[in-house]
Design a protein around this nucleic acid. Structure first.
Lengths: 338, 338
DNA sequence: AACGTTTTTGGGAACGTTTGCACACTTTTT
DNA sequence: AAAAAGTGTGCAAACGTTCCCAAAAACGTT
């Protein structure tokens, strides 16, 4: 099974021109006369000529494709980010290759290396919750692969990054729980080594401090696997409930839904009494019971911004040396009662 | 910014061999002596040689990549299918490029053509709910692009297809509503031209017939945009409720969640009285209120099977002329009460 | 010692582009 | 009138592979 398709050579032969002339005409170069251009364009149109991107890539030593690593596309936050990424990428004629780490370091590394060997021009990545060692990324970066981090970013890596205002998002959510009268607020969060974990914890602490509520470290539970394993969540819930929290603030999408599920499964009566606030971009949040107050990240925008930064790095003529970390505001969506 | 990487030529020069020998040694061809192979492999390892897939693609006239078109990755059904696809594809060393139609025919066509121009080796596609005219697919197929349809398949296109047992899934769900005492069962479904719509309608009708319940066409509402526009859903709900249904069977993922949302928004009191059954693969279904009985499709398996069929077509030496339509069983998951 | 075989290697074209350079022809400038 | 500049085109190399074909080396066999 093979595609039969016409090439520049075919056009050149048919028109009695050289391949260079045809190539230049198709790319609308100034050297070619209007007449010839029209001729070539018309004929190309007629035979439905499509440039072979592979040949072009080989010649130009770039693939016009960018790699994306997220933990899972089933997560609405990430699928919204991807939509943002695509909206920019397609405009600029890049295509995207999506890979999922499923929160596993091993899988993440494997995927990145697979992508790199496929000669992507750049990489957009949100680290997995397991990831601690990013030397493999440093290596690729040093070899010339542009990388932009989003959402889960490493502290010690000099490149562009795009994140939500995690501190403020956390602060607002926690404050909201406090203002609705809660005093014993648990915090369920991701693995300790993620940037978002630290920032969100800080926001939570700051809100408590503002209202003179003592911070109690036993009310904070970390989930190494980011909620991918339900046993991990159920264990966390089991350890938290004896402390009699009246509210809980959960710091990531997957954890939020997973935690509510664990609550419903193990302690359905408590589930509806506890005030819940959590980061989530789920578009089904209105259907949830118990309902919750959610911190929504500007996911689509995050994808757009990250992609713009990445493409600017890819297309830079000289190595980029000044980097920025863009911080985008979150939105607090109050619980709908029903 | 450019990758510096070693090539077969570099290895050949360093080792005083020809490129052909190196190429063959790397691919472990029988003609090359063990000695030379070892030498080449060791050196390649040392300089961290990675074959350039683009050059290979150009030479072999295939890209080792397959395209996927789904309506949206945010939909759990499709993200599960994609996981199934990837599980096979990566094994066989293909990579996948995912595109979303967002249920728009125009977008679907654009994406397919974009993928085709990127020289994918094959296409996996679930048609958008708007799609009626698939001539553009026929054209590509005729030119030699292998295509496998899944979930939403056209009736009149001779190729491999993978679908769920939609009739039985529908039948079971409807019967379940009947057995729990419902008699006036509405049916909310996708656009009329989709294969799944017809099959699921037939299952619904058959269940009614089995229990001698009259089929009433006014209880069936079609959604042209597959639930992508909330106005469409709210309109459908608004038209259905005056008929006083005591149960409703909804025939697709997006519609199911959308419909419950519309119900809660426009008629919250009715929402909790109505018995709901619907197709959905949402992994959050346990959180929903009102709760529902769901028909789960074997999405992961569907992805696997479709990919195996596609790759068999791609790698066939002679054009494939015998096609199969694989039908996979659905699973009825009963409502959890809470 | 001359000849076949078999095994191992190398030369070079090809895949479809892009692009630096040279060439031929026109037009302008001196 | 010759020289300079401008315009439009073609030649050929290159990108990194794969693979057909031939050549060389190693090994019997008579």
């Amino acid at each position: 099974m093979r595609f039969e398709t016409s090439t520049i050579k075919d056009i050149a032969k048919a028109l009695g021109l050289s391949t260079s002339t045809v190539s230049r005409a198709l790319r609308d170069r100034y050297e070619i006369s209007e007449e010839t251009k029209k001729l070539v364009l018309a004929y190309a149109e007629k035979v439905n000529y499509r440039a072979n991107p592979i040949a072009r890539s080989l010649k130009e030593r770039r693939s016009y494709s960018i790699g994306i690593i997220v933990s899972e596309i089933a997560n609405n936050f990430f699928s919204q980010v991807i939509n943002g990424i695509e909206s920019i990428a397609y405009d600029k004629d890049y295509h995207v290759i999506i890979s999922q780490s499923h929160e596993s370091y091993k899988q993440e590394k494997l995927n990145v290396e697979h992508l790199a060997s496929r000669s992507i021009d750049g990489l957009l990545i949100a680290l997995s919750s397991e990831t601690q060692d990013i030397d493999y990324l440093r290596e690729l970066y040093a070899k010339g692969l542009p990388i932009v981090f989003f959402d889960r970013v490493p502290g010690d890596f000099e490149t562009h990054k795009v994140i939500a205002n995690n501190f403020k998002g956390s602060f607002d959510a926690t404050e909201h729980l406090i203002l609705s009268g809660k005093r014993t607020i648990a915090h369920l969060t991701n693995s300790e080594n993620l940037s978002i974990t630290k920032e969100r914890l800080a926001g939570y602490k700051a809100a408590l401090a503002k209202y003179h509520i003592e911070f109690r470290s036993e009310l904070v539970k970390y989930c190494q696997h980011g909620g991918m394993h339900s046993a991990e969540l159920e264990q966390a819930v089991k350890e938290l409930l004896p402390l009699k929290p009246d509210g809980i603030f959960i710091s990531s999408d997957r954890l939020t839904t997973g935690c509510i599920m664990a609550l419903k499964k193990t302690n359905p009566e408590v589930a509806h009494k506890l005030a819940i606030a959590g980061f989530t971009n789920s578009n089904l949040v209105d259907l949830f019971s118990p309902s919750l107050t959610s911190v929504k990240q500007p996911a689509f925008e995050m994808g757009r911004v990250a992609t713009e930064l990445l493409i600017s790095m890819i297309e830079a003529k000289r190595p980029v040396t000044e980097f920025e970390t863009k911080v985008l505001d979150t939105e607090l969506v109050h619980m709908t009662k029903h």
